[in-house]
């Protein structure tokens, strides 16, 4: 059990890689998409869809955010950040050129290679859609590896739909559908006004050779899960990424645990087969 503390200098895992904010774009009224470049080439890291990193607003603190970009495109590290607290407020005030820091990548990822040949259903609600964007990018960049793809994106209102400018591109490839829905429309909205679980029931995707990837607020996940099960999806066919309060990302601060599992290290990506084995309700 006890490991010998070694004499060699151990790098401090709390020190982030210095980075510069290169662009900051409004996605919705309270969500911005940040693009960061690491300052030192030797810090460059590889990462997979579903992983996350901590972004620092020096002087305020740091917070964990899902990586919204894909590593192989080398377009910088992207994070979609909703303004909800002190750190995200501070990040929203940064101008391009500002110095920041990145610590990561942390956590596991969506095993997209294992999903090859399968039909994919991607369901995201609100800011919960952010960690799904690299999943979509990866699948569409390797379109022929996957079967039918259904993307279902919902939000409270049309102006809360994340990545709206990319929907058209996502719908271009064959056998790919993008469905949008909002809880409440506005004057310019011609689309659906319905809750995600209801839209899902209406679309009725087949569970055969399919994987459903969902992310969103707890209440949405709860009801979406019920609908997927009604459609015949098994627990192991449903994958989600959990959100937990985190401070370290290293499995040390014991804040994001669900039972003996850490969201930061054992997750954040879990199948519902795994979640149903958790001792603690989440």
């Amino acid at each position: 059990m006890v490991k010998e503390a070694t004499e060699k200098v151990i790098p401090n895992p709390f020190v982030p890689y210095p980075a510069t904010l290169t662009s900051s774009v409004d996605l919705t009224t309270d969500v911005k998409l940040f693009t960061l470049e690491l300052d030192r080439p030797e810090d460059e890291f590889d990462y997979k869809p579903g992983q996350f990193a901590f972004v620092s607003a020096f002087g305020v603190g740091e917070g964990p955010f899902g990586l919204a970009s894909v590593a192989y495109r080398k377009e910088g590290l992207q994070f979609a950040v909703r303004r909800v607290g002190t750190v995200t407020n501070a990040l929203h005030q940064l101008e391009p050129g500002a110095k920041t820091g990145v610590r990561g990548p942390f956590g596991n990822f969506f095993p997209l290679d294992d999903y090859k040949g399968k039909n994919i259903i991607i369901i995201g609600g609100g800011i919960g859609f952010a960690p799904l964007r690299p999943v979509i990018t990866t699948i569409l960049d390797n379109r022929e590896d996957y079967g039918e793809v259904l993307i279902l994106n919902g939000a409270r209102s049309p102006s809360d739909l994340c990545f709206a400018s990319e929907f058209d591109d996502w719908a271009k490839p064959p056998r790919t559908k993008v469905e949008l829905t909002v809880d409440a429309g506005d004057d310019n909205w011609n689309g659906r006004v319905a809750l995600i679980p209801d839209v899902l029931a209406e679309l009725g995707p087949s569970p055969k050779d399919a994987i459903a990837i969902i992310c969103g607020p707890p209440i949405m996940i709860k009801f979406t899960l019920t609908r997927l099960k009604n459609l015949g999806f098994g627990d192991e066919q449903i994958v989600t990424t959990l959100e937990g309060k985190m401070k370290c990302g290293l499995g040390k601060c014991f804040r994001c645990n669900v039972g003996e599992k850490y969201v930061c290290r054992d997750g954040p990506v879990f199948t519902f087969a795994e979640i149903s084995q958790f001792i603690e309700q989440f």
């Binding site: 059990m1 006890v2 490991k3 503390a5 070694t6 200098v9 151990i10 790098p11 401090n12 895992p13 709390f14 290293l250 499995g251 040390k252 014991f254």
Partner: peptide, 17 residues
């Protein structure tokens, strides 16, 4: 000594170490 478990688990907490 017991806290070496979580703190020295990879990546080790350098301050603890």
């Amino acid at each position: 000594a017991m806290l070496d478990g979580p703190y020295l688990d990879d990546p080790a907490d350098s301050l603890w170490a």
